[in-house]
Design a binder for these strands. Structure first.
Length: 589
RNA sequence: GGACUCGUAGCUCAGCUGGAUAGAGCAUCGCCCUUCUAAGGCGACGGUCGUAGGUUCGAAUCCUACCGGGUUCACCA
């Protein structure tokens, strides 16, 4: 909205002081001062050889002559406050009115696609609050990238093999007596998770017994009968033992059914699943290639390493001495696989910040291997969700289960809606849709409004709020506008000649006009919290307007028509913005 | 110990490419529904921006040191 103004300022600075490449610090005027935009003039004092006030005065007077958008100015110390005429606001609004998807760049099939990996669950236990943050971030970042016109391929990698998986398999074999999620009447992921816990309890007992016989804890763990069975099971799995494979398939299928139910509730979906049982063999030949190129080196014992000490990192193992692969090997292979599977120009990993080092190393290795796309890899490193007491610990039973939390959110939405008497006239079906919309909206906003990179605290004792800076606040603002629009009937025509913009109206347009740039910046920074913050500001400013100006009973019919149009734009921006966060904007609540 | 990261109101968070008197929400205490949905609006209360230096006309923001939290440095994934 101020690009023309910046050009005018540059011209002025050149004329007055001969500054060629001026650094223009133009910011929004703080609300305690008169004006819309403020130019900080301190940087020009050395050239102007005048006091801050005199310099600001000169620039202001010159701008009044040259820039038609500037209607007035005042000077406070070294700050030149400029008041804008209505023209830039009017043209900003004109732009929104002609574009129903204003703020979102439509899909451009000519642009290369982007890939986003997120979720990445283990198939031995259900999803928890940490996965929820991961899923919401991955989904939202995907939507943000789509809002730049790119196609997005959403993928997850499922950790479906390994010792931890065999543990729940072994426990089920021992204690299951053939029961299934169906016979127990619980979700498959929870069902399998219970057996994982059962195994842990069994292991603890066996370790305790062995330690009583004098073994150290490490030795006891190695010698525990159940661990020996599990190691054997893993070997049987790797050699394709039919019985083990069948059990593995059966139990994983239970888990997937459970995961899919949770994904459905969260509204996330994936275009392709990568399974570790398939990808864990990848990467070995790439290590061989790199070995030939001298990027890796082989030690005497046969293991293969890369020396990253020149890059300030350590030496890293990429292949064990027995030739089997490690986590890094797989990730190298999987990345290469993905770029051959799909035409894409970037790959974003949504993974917790505990793995910062891993990804630093991974990206560096891929770069050294000479892949040009290595520079487009990024790690959206998000902070853990902590409890007030610290980290969630499954052993202490403090993990917040994803399904339980969603249930609680829906129940909370129900309780509040009923208390406020908002459900009259809604069918049971409509009610349950509403509770889901509001409960999930509250949870999603609660998580996404926080800077992803920072760790955040969640207190399960205090339920997530529905008042103040919350999802339901945005939803409420949207619903209230929809109510107005339903009652507005056929608004007549209006033109700018009919309208004298009130301050509150200017504020709304000013805020609204930032929407497209906020979305683009949030996409570039992979930061949904920017969108959340914007939506909150917008809703707050609109509510301030709503409080003092009547839309439907405006002073003139033209004014009413204008305010209806303005309200519709706000509702549209709220709806599209919330959609970027995976939040549904209800039409009534 | 090395590396990375965080420290802002009682609590949860904004602000960080340097700019004016550091902002929200929750909580606490008031006020506003015969007018478009009060899940709303307005006000009060609440801060030596971890500490100490430095750079600068100007520092919550940049630099250094220290203090305090977290993560990570596996032939686990």
């Amino acid at each position: 909205m101020n690009t023309g103004l910046e050009a005018a300022i540059a011209t002025t600075l050149k004329e007055l002081y001969g500054i060629e490449q001026a650094n223009i610090d133009l910011q929004e005027t703080r609300k305690e001062f008169e004006g819309d935009l403020t130019l900080v003039v301190f940087p020009y004092l050395k050239v102007s050889r005048l006091s801050p006030e005199a310099t600001a005065e000169d620039i202001g007077a010159s701008l009044m002559r040259q820039a038609s958008d500037v209607s007035a100015y005042n000077v406070v110390k070294g700050f030149l406050n400029l008041s804008l005429s209505d023209a830039p606001l009017q043209s900003a609004m004109d732009q929104m009115l002609v574009d129903p998807q204003w703020g979102i760049v439509p899909l451009n099939p000519d642009l290369p696609a982007a890939m986003v990996e997120y979720s990445s669950p283990n198939t031995n236990k259900p999803l928890h609050l940490g996965h929820i943050r991961n899923n919401l971030l991955g989904y939202s970042v995907s939507k943000l990238i789509q809002a730049t016109g790119k196609q997005v391929i959403q993928v997850q990698i499922i950790n479906d093999r390994g010792v931890h998986i065999c543990k729940s398999m072994y426990a089920w074999k021992m204690f299951g007596n053939g029961e299934t999620p169906a016979t127990r009447g619980i979700k498959g992921d929870h069902f399998v998770g219970e057996y994982y816990v059962r195994f842990d309890q069994l292991l603890k007992r066996e370790v305790a017994e062995l330690m009583a016989e004098g073994y150290s804890e490490v030795d006891a763990t190695k010698r525990a009968p159940c661990m020996i069975h599990v190691q054997q099971m893993l070997q049987d799995w790797e050699s394709g033992n039919p019985e083990v494979m069948e059990l593995w398939n059966t139990m994983n299928a239970w888990v997937y059914e459970g995961f899919n139910a949770t994904y459905d509730r969260l509204g996330v979906q994936f275009d392709k699943n990568y399974f570790e049982s398939q990808t864990y063999v990848l990467g070995k030949k790439d290590i061989e290639t790199g070995l030939a190129q001298g990027i890796f080196y082989r030690r005497e014992d046969g293991s293969v390493w890369i020396d990253l000490t020149d890059d300030g990192l350590d030496e890293k193992l990429v292949l064990r001495k027995d030739g089997t692969s490690v986590y890094m090997t797989q990730d190298i292979g999987t990345a290469i696989q993905r770029f051959s599977d799909f035409q894409m120009d970037s790959l974003t990993y949504v993974v917790g910040n505990e793995q910062d080092y891993h990804f630093k190393v991974l990206f560096l290795i891929l770069q050294k291997l000479g892949y040009t796309w290595a520079s487009t890899l990024s790690h959206l490193s998000y902070g853990m969700v902590d409890l007030p007491s610290g980290r969630m610990k499954s052993r202490e039973g403090t993990v917040v289960d994803a399904d339980d939390l969603l249930d609680e959110m829906e129940a909370g939405a129900r309780r509040i809606s009923e208390e406020l008497g908002k459900v009259e006239g809604l069918s049971l079906e409509e009610q349950s849709v509403l509770y889901r919309t509001l409960g999930h909206g509250a949870l999603k906003y609660f998580i996404l409004k926080v800077d992803p990179r920072k760790r955040m605290v969640f207190n399960p004792e205090e339920s997530i709020d529905f008042n103040g800076n919350t999802g339901p606040f945005l939803q409420y603002t949207h619903a209230r506008i929809c109510s107005i629009l339903r009652k507005s009937g056929h608004a007549g025509p209006w033109t700018w000649e009919d309208i004298h913009l009130a301050d509150k109206e200017k504020e709304v347009i000013k805020c609204l006009s930032k929407f497209p740039s906020v979305v683009q910046k949030a996409a570039a920074d992979q930061n949904p919290s920017d969108v959340a913050g914007f939506l909150y500001d917008l809703a707050k400013i609109y509510n301030g307007f709503y409080q003092v100006h009547s839309v439907l009973n405006a002073e003139t019919p033209q004014n009413a028509a204008f305010r209806i149009a303005l309200s519709r734009q706000v509702a549209g921006a709220l709806q599209r913005g919330m959609a970027l966060l995976g939040i549904v904007a209800p039409e009534r609540m």
